[in-house]
Nucleic acid binder design. Structure first.
Lengths: 155, 155
DNA sequence: TATTGTTATACTCTATAACTATA
DNA sequence: TATAGTTATAGAGTATAACAATA
Protein backbone atom coordinates (compact mmCIF):
# COMPACT_ATOMS: atom_id res chain seq x y z
CA UNK A 1 0.00 0.00 0.00
CA UNK A 2 1.34 3.37 -1.09
CA UNK A 3 0.98 6.48 1.00
CA UNK A 4 -0.71 9.23 -1.04
CA UNK A 5 -2.60 12.45 -0.55
CA UNK A 6 -4.92 11.45 -3.36
CA UNK A 7 -7.31 8.57 -2.74
CA UNK A 8 -6.49 5.57 -4.90
CA UNK A 9 -8.64 5.31 -8.03
CA UNK A 10 -11.97 3.74 -7.20
CA UNK A 11 -11.40 4.39 -3.52
CA UNK A 12 -13.74 6.88 -1.88
CA UNK A 13 -12.78 8.50 1.34
CA UNK A 14 -15.43 7.74 3.92
CA UNK A 15 -18.01 10.45 4.51
CA UNK A 16 -19.51 10.77 7.97
CA UNK A 17 -23.24 10.29 7.47
CA UNK A 18 -24.08 9.35 11.04
CA UNK A 19 -26.27 12.37 11.68
CA UNK A 20 -28.60 11.90 8.71
CA UNK A 21 -28.65 8.13 9.11
CA UNK A 22 -29.87 8.55 12.67
CA UNK A 23 -32.97 10.37 11.40
CA UNK A 24 -36.18 8.69 10.31
CA UNK A 25 -36.68 11.17 7.45
CA UNK A 26 -33.41 10.45 5.68
CA UNK A 27 -33.47 6.71 6.40
CA UNK A 28 -37.00 6.33 5.08
CA UNK A 29 -36.16 8.18 1.87
CA UNK A 30 -33.17 5.94 1.17
CA UNK A 31 -35.19 2.82 2.00
CA UNK A 32 -38.04 3.88 -0.28
CA UNK A 33 -35.63 4.46 -3.17
CA UNK A 34 -34.17 0.97 -2.72
CA UNK A 35 -37.56 -0.72 -2.34
CA UNK A 36 -39.07 1.00 -5.40
CA UNK A 37 -36.08 0.08 -7.52
CA UNK A 38 -36.34 -3.51 -6.34
CA UNK A 39 -40.03 -3.61 -7.24
CA UNK A 40 -39.35 -2.32 -10.75
CA UNK A 41 -36.63 -4.95 -11.17
CA UNK A 42 -39.17 -7.59 -10.11
CA UNK A 43 -41.72 -6.34 -12.63
CA UNK A 44 -41.28 -7.49 -16.21
CA UNK A 45 -40.32 -5.23 -19.07
CA UNK A 46 -42.93 -2.75 -20.20
CA UNK A 47 -44.63 -3.13 -16.85
CA UNK A 48 -46.99 -0.62 -15.37
CA UNK A 49 -45.75 2.13 -13.13
CA UNK A 50 -46.40 1.75 -9.42
CA UNK A 51 -49.24 4.27 -9.51
CA UNK A 52 -50.87 2.46 -12.42
CA UNK A 53 -50.44 -0.81 -10.55
CA UNK A 54 -51.95 0.73 -7.42
CA UNK A 55 -54.97 2.05 -9.34
CA UNK A 56 -55.58 -1.42 -10.79
CA UNK A 57 -55.20 -3.07 -7.38
CA UNK A 58 -57.70 -0.71 -5.76
CA UNK A 59 -60.14 -1.00 -8.67
CA UNK A 60 -59.97 -4.80 -8.47
CA UNK A 61 -60.96 -4.85 -4.80
CA UNK A 62 -63.44 -1.96 -5.15
CA UNK A 63 -65.32 -2.34 -8.44
CA UNK A 64 -66.86 0.91 -9.57
CA UNK A 65 -64.56 3.10 -7.50
CA UNK A 66 -64.59 6.66 -8.82
CA UNK A 67 -61.61 8.74 -9.93
CA UNK A 68 -61.97 11.07 -6.95
CA UNK A 69 -61.97 8.13 -4.58
CA UNK A 70 -58.85 6.76 -6.24
CA UNK A 71 -57.11 10.11 -5.95
CA UNK A 72 -58.05 10.41 -2.31
CA UNK A 73 -57.03 6.95 -1.10
CA UNK A 74 -53.82 6.92 -3.14
CA UNK A 75 -52.89 10.44 -2.02
CA UNK A 76 -52.42 11.85 -5.51
CA UNK A 77 -54.09 14.97 -6.85
CA UNK A 78 -57.24 14.49 -8.91
CA UNK A 79 -55.73 15.79 -12.15
CA UNK A 80 -52.99 13.21 -11.99
CA UNK A 81 -55.52 10.35 -12.17
CA UNK A 82 -56.61 11.43 -15.66
CA UNK A 83 -53.53 10.50 -17.71
CA UNK A 84 -53.10 7.34 -15.62
CA UNK A 85 -56.56 6.12 -16.57
CA UNK A 86 -56.09 7.27 -20.16
CA UNK A 87 -53.08 5.00 -20.33
CA UNK A 88 -54.85 2.04 -18.65
CA UNK A 89 -57.72 2.43 -21.14
CA UNK A 90 -55.25 2.58 -24.05
CA UNK A 91 -53.77 -0.68 -22.81
CA UNK A 92 -57.24 -2.19 -22.56
CA UNK A 93 -56.85 -2.82 -18.82
CA UNK A 94 -59.58 -0.55 -17.44
CA UNK A 95 -62.71 1.27 -18.49
CA UNK A 96 -64.47 4.43 -17.34
CA UNK A 97 -68.22 3.93 -16.92
CA UNK A 98 -70.44 6.96 -16.32
CA UNK A 99 -72.39 6.31 -13.13
CA UNK A 100 -76.16 5.99 -13.45
CA UNK A 101 -76.71 7.38 -9.96
CA UNK A 102 -74.62 10.50 -10.53
CA UNK A 103 -73.51 11.24 -14.06
CA UNK A 104 -70.58 13.32 -12.83
CA UNK A 105 -68.92 10.15 -11.59
CA UNK A 106 -66.84 7.83 -13.72
CA UNK A 107 -66.69 4.39 -12.20
CA UNK A 108 -63.52 2.48 -12.91
CA UNK A 109 -63.76 -1.21 -13.76
CA UNK A 110 -61.02 -3.58 -14.84
CA UNK A 111 -61.36 -5.51 -18.05
CA UNK A 112 -60.69 -9.27 -18.13
CA UNK A 113 -57.34 -8.45 -19.69
CA UNK A 114 -56.62 -5.94 -16.94
CA UNK A 115 -57.53 -8.43 -14.22
CA UNK A 116 -55.16 -10.97 -15.80
CA UNK A 117 -52.35 -8.42 -16.02
CA UNK A 118 -52.91 -7.47 -12.40
CA UNK A 119 -52.69 -11.11 -11.32
CA UNK A 120 -49.35 -11.48 -13.10
CA UNK A 121 -47.95 -8.32 -11.53
CA UNK A 122 -49.22 -9.32 -8.08
CA UNK A 123 -47.42 -12.64 -8.52
CA UNK A 124 -44.19 -10.77 -9.26
CA UNK A 125 -44.87 -8.34 -6.43
CA UNK A 126 -45.26 -11.27 -4.05
CA UNK A 127 -41.84 -12.58 -5.10
CA UNK A 128 -40.39 -9.15 -4.35
CA UNK A 129 -42.03 -9.13 -0.92
CA UNK A 130 -40.63 -12.60 -0.18
CA UNK A 131 -37.15 -11.24 -0.84
CA UNK A 132 -37.85 -8.43 1.61
CA UNK A 133 -38.97 -11.07 4.10
CA UNK A 134 -35.60 -12.79 3.81
CA UNK A 135 -33.86 -9.49 4.44
CA UNK A 136 -36.11 -8.44 7.31
CA UNK A 137 -37.02 -11.72 8.96
CA UNK A 138 -39.22 -11.16 11.98
CA UNK A 139 -38.71 -7.39 11.72
CA UNK A 140 -41.28 -7.06 8.96
CA UNK A 141 -44.37 -6.98 11.18
CA UNK A 142 -42.84 -4.29 13.35
CA UNK A 143 -41.78 -2.34 10.28
CA UNK A 144 -45.28 -2.28 8.79
CA UNK A 145 -46.71 -1.36 12.19
CA UNK A 146 -44.28 1.54 12.54
CA UNK A 147 -44.85 2.75 8.96
CA UNK A 148 -48.62 2.74 9.44
CA UNK A 149 -48.22 4.70 12.65
CA UNK A 150 -46.01 7.25 10.89
CA UNK A 151 -48.61 7.61 8.12
CA UNK A 152 -51.05 8.90 10.70
CA UNK A 153 -48.88 11.64 12.18
CA UNK A 154 -50.82 14.57 10.84
CA UNK A 155 -54.23 13.32 11.96
CA UNK B 1 -79.95 8.10 10.26
CA UNK B 2 -81.51 8.15 6.82
CA UNK B 3 -81.20 5.27 4.39
CA UNK B 4 -79.84 6.53 1.07
CA UNK B 5 -78.11 5.24 -2.00
CA UNK B 6 -75.93 8.34 -1.97
CA UNK B 7 -73.39 8.66 0.79
CA UNK B 8 -74.19 11.51 3.12
CA UNK B 9 -72.24 14.68 2.35
CA UNK B 10 -68.83 14.49 3.93
CA UNK B 11 -69.18 10.75 4.37
CA UNK B 12 -66.88 8.61 2.27
CA UNK B 13 -67.72 5.02 1.63
CA UNK B 14 -64.88 2.88 2.87
CA UNK B 15 -62.43 1.71 0.24
CA UNK B 16 -60.74 -1.62 0.77
CA UNK B 17 -57.01 -0.83 0.83
CA UNK B 18 -55.89 -3.97 2.64
CA UNK B 19 -53.83 -5.29 -0.25
CA UNK B 20 -51.68 -2.19 -0.76
CA UNK B 21 -51.41 -1.54 2.97
CA UNK B 22 -49.98 -5.03 3.43
CA UNK B 23 -47.06 -4.15 1.13
CA UNK B 24 -43.85 -2.48 2.25
CA UNK B 25 -43.69 -0.39 -0.95
CA UNK B 26 -47.02 1.36 -0.51
CA UNK B 27 -46.70 1.68 3.29
CA UNK B 28 -43.26 3.22 3.05
CA UNK B 29 -44.40 5.76 0.46
CA UNK B 30 -47.30 6.90 2.64
CA UNK B 31 -45.08 7.05 5.71
CA UNK B 32 -42.46 9.10 3.90
CA UNK B 33 -45.07 11.60 2.72
CA UNK B 34 -46.33 12.03 6.29
CA UNK B 35 -42.84 12.29 7.80
CA UNK B 36 -41.62 14.85 5.23
CA UNK B 37 -44.71 16.97 5.72
CA UNK B 38 -44.20 16.82 9.47
CA UNK B 39 -40.58 17.92 9.09
CA UNK B 40 -41.56 20.92 6.97
CA UNK B 41 -44.16 21.88 9.55
CA UNK B 42 -41.44 21.71 12.21
CA UNK B 43 -39.14 23.94 10.17
CA UNK B 44 -39.77 27.64 10.33
CA UNK B 45 -41.05 29.72 7.45
CA UNK B 46 -38.64 30.28 4.60
CA UNK B 47 -36.68 27.26 5.77
CA UNK B 48 -34.36 25.29 3.60
CA UNK B 49 -35.58 22.30 1.65
CA UNK B 50 -34.65 18.88 2.97
CA UNK B 51 -31.95 18.42 0.33
CA UNK B 52 -30.43 21.80 1.18
CA UNK B 53 -30.56 20.88 4.86
CA UNK B 54 -28.93 17.52 4.11
CA UNK B 55 -26.13 19.17 2.13
CA UNK B 56 -25.44 21.54 5.03
CA UNK B 57 -25.51 18.69 7.55
CA UNK B 58 -23.01 16.63 5.54
CA UNK B 59 -20.78 19.63 4.88
CA UNK B 60 -20.75 20.46 8.59
CA UNK B 61 -19.50 17.01 9.56
CA UNK B 62 -17.19 16.69 6.54
CA UNK B 63 -15.54 20.06 5.88
CA UNK B 64 -14.23 20.33 2.35
CA UNK B 65 -16.48 17.61 0.97
CA UNK B 66 -16.73 17.91 -2.81
CA UNK B 67 -19.87 18.27 -4.90
CA UNK B 68 -19.42 14.80 -6.37
CA UNK B 69 -19.13 13.30 -2.92
CA UNK B 70 -22.27 15.10 -1.82
CA UNK B 71 -24.16 13.83 -4.84
CA UNK B 72 -23.01 10.29 -4.23
CA UNK B 73 -23.73 10.01 -0.51
CA UNK B 74 -27.08 11.81 -0.81
CA UNK B 75 -28.12 9.74 -3.83
CA UNK B 76 -28.89 12.69 -6.06
CA UNK B 77 -27.49 13.22 -9.54
CA UNK B 78 -24.46 15.50 -9.85
CA UNK B 79 -26.25 18.17 -11.87
CA UNK B 80 -28.82 18.60 -9.14
CA UNK B 81 -26.18 19.67 -6.62
CA UNK B 82 -25.39 22.77 -8.68
CA UNK B 83 -28.56 24.82 -8.12
CA UNK B 84 -28.71 23.64 -4.50
CA UNK B 85 -25.24 25.09 -3.83
CA UNK B 86 -26.01 28.19 -5.87
CA UNK B 87 -28.90 28.82 -3.51
CA UNK B 88 -26.88 28.11 -0.37
CA UNK B 89 -24.22 30.55 -1.60
CA UNK B 90 -26.89 33.17 -2.37
CA UNK B 91 -28.11 32.78 1.19
CA UNK B 92 -24.56 33.14 2.46
CA UNK B 93 -24.65 29.71 4.13
CA UNK B 94 -21.97 27.89 2.13
CA UNK B 95 -19.01 28.58 -0.11
CA UNK B 96 -17.34 26.71 -2.95
CA UNK B 97 -13.55 26.65 -2.61
CA UNK B 98 -11.45 25.38 -5.50
CA UNK B 99 -9.24 22.61 -4.16
CA UNK B 100 -5.49 23.23 -4.19
CA UNK B 101 -4.75 19.54 -4.66
CA UNK B 102 -7.01 19.14 -7.69
CA UNK B 103 -8.42 22.26 -9.24
CA UNK B 104 -11.34 20.33 -10.70
CA UNK B 105 -12.77 19.88 -7.21
CA UNK B 106 -14.88 22.42 -5.42
CA UNK B 107 -14.76 21.90 -1.69
CA UNK B 108 -17.86 22.94 0.17
CA UNK B 109 -17.52 24.77 3.45
CA UNK B 110 -20.20 26.30 5.63
CA UNK B 111 -19.98 29.95 6.60
CA UNK B 112 -20.47 31.01 10.21
CA UNK B 113 -23.96 32.11 9.23
CA UNK B 114 -24.61 28.72 7.62
CA UNK B 115 -23.39 26.87 10.68
CA UNK B 116 -25.72 28.93 12.86
CA UNK B 117 -28.67 28.32 10.53
CA UNK B 118 -27.90 24.59 10.57
CA UNK B 119 -27.86 24.55 14.37
CA UNK B 120 -31.30 26.18 14.47
CA UNK B 121 -32.76 23.73 11.96
CA UNK B 122 -31.20 20.78 13.76
CA UNK B 123 -32.88 22.00 16.92
CA UNK B 124 -36.23 22.02 15.15
CA UNK B 125 -35.47 18.68 13.53
CA UNK B 126 -34.78 17.20 16.97
CA UNK B 127 -38.20 18.39 18.17
CA UNK B 128 -39.76 16.65 15.17
CA UNK B 129 -37.90 13.45 15.97
CA UNK B 130 -39.06 13.60 19.58
CA UNK B 131 -42.65 13.69 18.32
CA UNK B 132 -41.91 10.61 16.24
CA UNK B 133 -40.50 9.00 19.37
CA UNK B 134 -43.80 9.57 21.16
CA UNK B 135 -45.64 7.96 18.28
CA UNK B 136 -43.26 5.05 17.91
CA UNK B 137 -42.07 4.39 21.44
CA UNK B 138 -39.70 1.47 21.59
CA UNK B 139 -40.43 0.65 17.92
CA UNK B 140 -38.06 3.36 16.69
CA UNK B 141 -34.85 1.37 16.99
CA UNK B 142 -36.36 -1.54 15.10
CA UNK B 143 -37.72 0.83 12.47
CA UNK B 144 -34.33 2.40 11.78
CA UNK B 145 -32.71 -1.02 11.71
CA UNK B 146 -35.28 -2.28 9.19
CA UNK B 147 -34.99 0.87 7.03
CA UNK B 148 -31.20 0.59 6.91
CA UNK B 149 -31.49 -3.06 5.91
CA UNK B 150 -33.92 -2.16 3.14
CA UNK B 151 -31.56 0.53 1.87
CA UNK B 152 -29.02 -2.18 1.17
CA UNK B 153 -31.24 -4.45 -0.94
CA UNK B 154 -29.53 -3.88 -4.23
CA UNK B 155 -25.99 -4.43 -2.97
C1' DT C 1 -73.50 26.83 -5.17
C1' DA C 2 -70.80 22.55 -4.99
C1' DT C 3 -68.60 18.49 -7.04
C1' DT C 4 -66.45 15.36 -10.81
C1' DG C 5 -63.59 15.06 -14.32
C1' DT C 6 -60.75 17.69 -17.21
C1' DT C 7 -57.39 21.09 -19.12
C1' DA C 8 -53.73 24.15 -18.42
C1' DT C 9 -49.76 25.97 -16.06
C1' DA C 10 -45.74 26.01 -13.28
C1' DC C 11 -42.33 24.19 -10.37
C1' DT C 12 -39.64 20.39 -8.66
C1' DC C 13 -37.39 16.02 -9.30
C1' DT C 14 -35.10 12.72 -12.10
C1' DA C 15 -32.26 11.10 -15.81
C1' DT C 16 -29.09 11.97 -19.74
C1' DA C 17 -26.02 13.93 -22.80
C1' DA C 18 -22.62 17.06 -23.75
C1' DC C 19 -19.59 20.91 -22.79
C1' DT C 20 -15.25 23.15 -20.02
C1' DA C 21 -11.46 22.87 -17.34
C1' DT C 22 -8.57 20.31 -15.34
C1' DA C 23 -5.88 15.98 -14.62
C1' DT D 1 -8.42 9.52 -21.86
C1' DA D 2 -10.80 10.40 -17.64
C1' DT D 3 -13.05 13.17 -13.98
C1' DA D 4 -15.50 17.46 -11.63
C1' DG D 5 -18.46 20.81 -12.32
C1' DT D 6 -21.75 22.81 -15.35
C1' DT D 7 -25.37 23.53 -18.87
C1' DA D 8 -29.22 21.96 -21.38
C1' DT D 9 -33.10 19.08 -22.18
C1' DA D 10 -36.85 15.99 -21.52
C1' DG D 11 -39.84 13.27 -18.71
C1' DA D 12 -42.20 12.43 -14.30
C1' DG D 13 -44.30 14.09 -10.09
C1' DT D 14 -46.65 17.72 -7.54
C1' DA D 15 -49.61 21.66 -6.74
C1' DT D 16 -53.08 25.10 -8.35
C1' DA D 17 -56.48 27.41 -10.89
C1' DA D 18 -60.20 27.29 -13.82
C1' DC D 19 -63.63 25.33 -16.96
C1' DA D 20 -67.78 22.12 -18.49
C1' DA D 21 -71.16 18.98 -17.07
C1' DT D 22 -73.92 17.62 -13.50
C1' DA D 23 -75.99 17.82 -9.03
Amino acid sequence: MTASKQPAPGTKRPIDMRYLESTVGYSIRRAQMAVFQHIYESFDDKALTLVQFSVMAVAADNPGVTQSELAQVLAVERPRIVPILNRLEELGFAKRVVSEDDKRNRQIVLTASGAARLRELKRRFAAHERELDELLGKRKTGLLDALHRLSGIGE
